[in-house]
């Protein structure tokens, strides 16, 4: 009996998964985005094995090969000290993706929990405290805030992550707050309250699952945006420090040599564009997937 039920449960979840995938895959661009995203992630993970010159990711110089244009030996050409740009871009992805993952895994849970609490305890002091702090953070342009924080601490990848996380949670807080304020009046939330369920149950099991669709969509779109902000900070020297290959740092270095040695700036920039684009395409696909489901 139990086993049959388990089989039934499994086949239901498999059915809902394949239904979701069907909706997602109806948009070919989203599938393309997903493919690119997966290859970027795999490339970043296996960077030492994929890149043709893994040693070029660090403090390596070979002035005899400096400033070479793209060729079959150096797909993206070489930079001013003779390092292979293709290899450095692949390693650069590592920093960008780690940045996105760390920032989102710090900012998202904290924003979500604060948003749930503020939304559920509407018109109580706790809501006022949380939402006014959120407003203060939202009032300052995010890049400026992250800039100020990174300068205040010392500019390195860790501080950059902390700074971006600190400016990112209010967006999740706002999103989840607005969802919660409407969800808490739904009768299923009422019912859980009247049954006597704990606040943790109501917030995390009744309300939160209904926020998943918009939060997940925002998360994919944000991942690209976080990478942009990270690259922007690196561009002005407040992120990954040389000789380590930050994509923003590489664009900044290459920009000095435009337009003659264009490959030094263009390829790292193109790498940023591709990863952001793929995140956005996947985000669009997720939005379509959830939107149809809601109807």
């Amino acid at each position: 009996m139990k086993k049959e039920l388990l089989v039934a449960a499994l086949s239901r979840s498999r059915a809902s998964f394949s239904k979701g995938w069907y909706k997602f895959s109806r948009n070919p661009l989203s599938v393309l985005g997903l493919i690119i995203l997966f290859s970027v992630i795999l490339t970043a993970i296996f960077a030492p094995y994929i890149s043709p010159y893994p040693e070029h990711a660090g403090a390596f110089t070979n002035f005899r090969e400096s400033g070479l244009p793209p060729s079959l030996t150096h797909f993206f050409g070489t930079d001013s000290v003779g390092r292979d740009i293709f290899s450095r871009v692949i390693f650069g992805y590592r920093f960008s993706l780690v940045l996105a993952v760390v920032v989102l895994s710090l900012a998202m849970p904290s924003g979500i929990i604060l948003g749930l609490i503020a939304g559920y305890y509407r018109r109580r002091w706790i809501e006022i405290v949380i939402m006014r702090i959120t407003d203060i953070f939202l009032a300052v342009p995010p890049l400026v805030l992250a800039l100020a924080i990174t300068v205040m601490l010392s500019p390195n990848l860790f501080n950059q992550m902390m700074a971006i996380s600190l400016m990112w949670w209010p967006w999740y807080c706002r999103l989840v707050y607005s969802l919660t304020t409407s969800l808490r009046h739904e009768y299923f939330v009422r019912e859980a309250e009247l049954t006597g369920a704990s606040k943790a149950h109501i917030l995390l099991r009744e309300i939160l699952p209904n926020c998943v669709a918009p939060v997940l969509t925002k998360m994919t779109l944000d991942a690209g945006f976080v990478i942009t902000v990270g690259a922007s900070l690196s561009f002005i020297g407040l992120g990954v420090q040389p000789p380590r290959p930050g994509l923003g740092t590489m664009v900044a270095d290459g920009a000095k040599r435009l337009p003659a040695e264009w490959w030094m700036a263009v390829f790292p920039a193109l790498a940023i564009v591709i990863v952001i684009l793929s995140f956005n395409l996947v985000g669009d696909g997720l939005r379509d997937m959830f939107a149809v489901e809601e109807v």
Partner: peptide, 18 residues
């Protein structure tokens, strides 16, 4: 809470879709 229970008017909104 155990003794007095309610059935709401709109079953669509009284069951959590998730």
């Amino acid at each position: 809470k155990k003794e007095i229970r309610i059935v709401f008017q709109d079953p669509g909104s009284s069951l959590n879709p998730r």
